[in-house]
Design a binder for these strands. Structure first.
Length: 698
DNA sequence: CAGTGAGCGAGCTTCCGCTTGACTT
């Protein structure tokens, strides 16, 4: 038999290395490093008058890869394209075929990297599916048109350098809308009544441990609404009827309740867990996962799939049975991703179940081990049985009122053995129906309804994914983009607030291009792309149907909408030349500028005392000013944001005074060197003077 | 650690999704 060499191309170099190990010498496996061709960056690259014909170029970054691939292809007898089995993967194969001038490339797909899966795929090669490629072209062209037509509109009508797009504009809109909800929110007062009870006639000394708490939940046989008791008077009125009432157990319901483990991670849920558990940004979590992937500890980390290979299911079952016992294994538990998932990969899981986090302690350091632990625990737990609780619900009557008490005891830990999860255990005393109870005390409690919480990285990604907006590879970059554009900022609690610019741009888009920023726009687009992928519609027609009305509307808005005036008049006078000062919008927020510009370049920073301003003044006199200036001219310390968005503390008289520190100053001074004390991120209070070692013990 | 803006009217800004290093902060 003739010895032939085949060139197999995949996207990721790590995957190429792994595959290389499975395949014989007659195969050379290489990576394309993602897409090798794209629309040009500097212009639209879509001829709207010529049936939306796209112009594809090889970006400078991809030139080296492409020429290397060309060389490899030339010396191989056949080229096999083995990119991911989804829209983008198919498109990458097509672009490879075009860029490398491949006449008759083989196209194969496989879902798991095992010898049998690969061998099976190699025996059953297919062709590039042009319907799928066309669906990708439609997606690409639509995104390009939206982004490259709307962004210039914003430059003209608001300010240069702005951007808009199908994904980022909706992400910003979510943050803006949340802020509106919070602004509109009015807290409502309500009260609850809780009774501490215990069984009568218990003579043993541990009577106190028989106490339990029940909450008022019924009145005249009707359930009590959460907001029904509006104030203290109403609560007191109820209390009057209850202080001397007879408390009797009406009903006891005992049952087993189960808590199921969560499915293994996808990109989105891993990013959410990284953010919620460790406060890592999506970017940080992804770079740690990238390293874990490259080092062979985990499967591919950009995925929307919950699939688990048979090999991994066996591996999990073996591990669980061996380490915890057969009763902990759930057998092969399969999870299904929500609709819209493209499922070209497996879920994110450890490559070896028996590589426990404990066993990798020497190899993986801090943050990487933390992320690995999350992935390992979640995967192993997903193949374990539910935790079982014995729960007891007790209904109590007292005059016309009803109370409820619940107890739950862990009966079998199940998956909780590896997956730490908060749950409360609350033991109820031994009780019987119709039993009379003693009232130990009855207390009313005041509450207020809470405003909706601002998004953090986790909840924003969750919201985007829920609506199918964005992909595993773009969640983290999208969050970076909309912060870089200064549309939203992270506050000190790491939650997103819209900036003035974010609000202005969102307003402009919502009023004039509602379709584009509609939360359902992507879902509608996906449906149409599916039609293209199934060959029921052409990609050109799909784009045309969108483009016609869009272009018409855009043209009208260019004429109708005036340029936004971002300047605000003030009655301040320039201290240098006496001319009027104006409040302007700059790249980093608002500032005061002299109208005499460019002759007079005087500016002043705007110091606001609320959190929505660029700076928050603390009631602390600047220690540097205090040393050299008379009391009237001393600045105060203010919280500010650096160019990179990090919060620091500086004198509000900057640039006249350049006092600045990363740690938050407090109004106390060092007993040894008299410098101001600061509180660092860990909550420790220490001296701001680097040469001074003073630390306040806490 | 801390800056921004105007207009000569040049040349540029901008999208989403697939992949990693090679750059400098």
């Amino acid at each position: 038999m003739k010895k032939t060499e085949s060139l197999l191309i995949v996207e990721s170099p790590t995957k190429a290395r792994t595959l290389g190990k499975f395949l014989g010498k007659e195969y050379k496996v290489v990576a394309s490093f993602g897409h090798v061709r794209d629309l040009p960056k500097s212009k639209l690259g879509v001829d709207v008058d010529k049936n939306f014909e796209p112009t594809y170029i090889i970006p400078t970054k991809a030139k080296k890869v492409v020429s290397a691939l060309k060389k490899d292809a030339k010396s191989a007898d056949e080229v096999i394209l083995a990119t991911d089995e989804d829209r983008e993967g198919e498109s990458i194969s097509w672009h490879l075929a075009e860029a490398l001038g491949l006449k008759n490339p083989k196209r194969i797909v496989f879902h798991e990297i095992t010898k049998t899966a690969i061998e099976h795929a190699l025996k059953n090669p297919g062709k590039i599916d042009m319907n799928l490629v066309n669906a990708q072209q439609a997606r690409r062209v639509l995104d390009r048109i939206v982004g490259y037509k709307l962004s210039p509109f914003l430059w003209k009508k608001i300010s240069k350098g702005l951007s808009a797009g199908r994904v980022q504009s909706v992400a910003v809109k979510l943050v803006v809308e949340k802020e509106e909800e919070i602004k509109k929110f009015i807290a409502v007062e309500y009260w609850t009544v809780e009774a501490t009870l215990r069984p009568q006639m218990t003579n043993n000394k541990s009577q106190i441990t028989n106490e339990f708490v029940a909450f008022l939940n019924k009145k005249n046989g009707q359930p009590v609404d959460k907001l029904e008791i509006k104030n203290q008077q109403e609560a007191d009125e109820i209390l009057k009827h209850l202080e001397n009432a007879n408390y009797q157990i009406e009903k006891i319901t005992k049952k087993e309740t189960r808590k199921n483990p969560l499915p293994p991670f996808t990109t989105s849920t891993l990013q959410q867990a990284g953010s919620n558990k460790f406060g890592y940004s999506a970017k940080m979590t992804m770079s740690l996962a990238q390293k874990l992937y490259e080092e062979g500890h985990i499967t591919y980390h950009r995925t929307d799939s919950l699939n688990l290979s048979e090999m991994s299911l066996n591996m999990a079952q073996d591990f669980i049975t061996k380490n915890f016992g057969k009763e902990y294994s759930s057998g092969f538990k399969v999870y299904k991703a929500g609709k819209g998932a493209q499922e070209a990969h497996e879920a994110i899981r450890p490559t070896h179940a028996d590589h426990t986090p404990e066993s990798l302690k020497g190899e993986l350091e801090g943050p990487k081990l933390k992320i690995y632990t999350l992935i390992w625990q979640r995967f192993v737990a997903s193949q374990m049985v539910p935790a079982i609780f014995d729960s007891t619900a007790v209904e109590i009557t007292a005059n016309n009122y009803g109370f409820g008490a619940n107890g739950q005891i862990l009966k079998f830990d199940g998956f909780l053995k590896v997956y730490p999860m908060k749950f409360s255990e609350n033991e109820m005393p031994v009780l019987a129906e119709k039993e009379m109870l003693d009232l130990v005390r009855i207390t009313p409690a005041q509450h207020f309804t809470e405003p909706p919480a601002r998004y953090n990285e986790a909840s924003l990604i969750k919201a985007l994914e829920k609506h199918g907006i964005g992909r595993p590879s773009t969640y983290a970059p999208t969050l970076s983009t909309i912060q870089d554009r200064n549309y939203i900022i992270k506050n000190e609690q790491k939650r997103f607030e819209p900036t003035e610019m974010g609000i202005i741009v969102t307003d402009m888009l919502v009023k004039n291009f509602p379709q584009i920023v509609d939360i359902e726009f992507t879902a509608t687009m996906e449906k149409e792309l599916d039609e293209v992928a199934e060959g029921k519609d052409t990609w050109e027609k799909t784009i045309k149907d969108f483009y016609g009305p869009f272009a018409q509307n855009l043209k009208e808005k260019y004429d109708q909408i005036p340029k936004e005036d971002l300047n605000i008049k003030t009655d301040k006078k320039c201290p240098k030349c006496g001319k009027d000062m104006v409040d302007k919008m700059g790249r980093f927020g608002r500032f005061y500028a002299c109208t005499g510009f460019p002759e007079c370049k005087h500016t002043e920073s705007i110091v606001k005392t609320t959190s929505d301003g660029p700076a928050i003044t603390l009631d602390i006199v600047c220690p540097k000013c205090a040393q050299g200036l008379p009391a009237g001219r001393q600045g105060k310390m203010a919280a500010k944001r650096s160019k990179r968005g990090k919060i620091f503390y500086g004198c509000d008289q900057y640039p006249a005074c350049d006092m600045a520190t990363w740690d938050k100053p407090i109004n106390e001074f060092c007993p040894t060197c008299k410098s101001i004390l600061v509180e660092n991120k860990k909550g420790q209070i220490k001296c701001s003077n680097k040469e001074c070692e003073y630390k306040k013990s806490e």
